[in-house]
């Protein structure tokens, strides 16, 4: 067994490993795990990557608000963006708008903001979720605020790349259009993941266990990266990292 790690550290490592050197990574609001991942990648294997973190002072070179950022996104300037959702469904659709009906919601969520465009125009969108339950992974979302699929007549240069949760990693099967299991995290079982998913989950290829964080990744995370993350997410930096 490797060095003990927190679930946040694991998720950040999994996301960071996806980022290639030189890619442009944009991180939205309320996204401490993706921010940690982007900075970890930059501090390790992707030193030439551009990292933008919304709401930060140090990683936000835009001078004309989110307007300028969204225009850049519509031009296809970003390789990575990170979304979450109160609900994510079998097809990879996201609901950031309302639980229940749109007109009379049980819970009115903050809304999709730019995600209904970003999901189409950012090359690789990673969905991250800090809980993995039958309530969050559903057969069909109550309201599609970001759509994983679109008619062929619509210009689309990007979409769903991976789904990372505290239990597993999932990806979309391009033939069926459904989310499938890519790997299950150490300490968790396939049965557990299936029991906590509100739709039928099959394997994407062969059964695999998630590669846990390596000692070197953890050392960088708990050193340089934690100090950087503390500038944007001080409470998260104090809580989410191991000793």
């Amino acid at each position: 067994m490797s060095v003990p790690y927190t679930v946040e550290e694991l998720m950040a490592c999994l996301i960071a490993r996806e980022i290639k050197n030189g890619e442009t990574v944009a991180v939205g609001t309320f996204s401490p795990i993706p921010a940690t991942a982007a900075l970890l990648a930059q501090e390790t294997h992707a030193p030439d990557s551009e990292v933008y973190i919304m709401g930060s002072r140090d990683w936000w070179p835009f001078t004309e608000g989110s307007n300028e950022f969204f225009h850049a996104a519509q031009r296809g300037r970003f390789d990575y963006f990170f979304l979450s959702g109160a609900q994510i469904d079998r097809q990879g659709n996201i609901n950031l708008h309302a639980i229940g009906s749109y007109r009379q919601p049980k819970v009115r969520l903050p809304g999709g903001a730019g995600s209904s465009m970003l999901y189409y125009m950012v090359k690789k969108v990673i969905l991250f979720k800090t809980d993995h339950t039958v309530k969050s992974f559903v057969e069909k979302v109550d309201f599609v605020s970001s759509s994983a699929s679109s008619p062929p007549s619509v210009y689309r240069t990007g979409g769903l790349h991976l789904v990372v949760t505290p239990l597993a990693v999932m990806a979309r099967n391009s033939e069926t259009g459904f989310l499938e299991l890519l790997s299950v995290h150490p300490g968790h079982t396939v049965d557990e993941v299936r029991a906590n998913t509100g739709f039928e989950l099959q394997w994407h290829g062969e059964e695999r266990q998630t590669m846990p964080p390596e000692a070197e990744e953890l050392a960088v995370l708990r050193g340089a990266v934690r100090a950087l993350v503390a500038k944007v997410y001080p409470a998260f930096a104090a809580r989410a990292f191991g000793p």
Partner: peptide, 24 residues
């Protein structure tokens, strides 16, 4: 605006219109 077509915003916002891109 890029994207959005395919989401439920298209059903709840009748003021959102889809047109043929005159330049594409």
């Amino acid at each position: 605006v890029r994207g959005v077509i395919g989401t439920d915003y298209m059903t709840v916002r009748p003021d959102f219109k889809v047109i043929k891109n005159p330049f594409g």
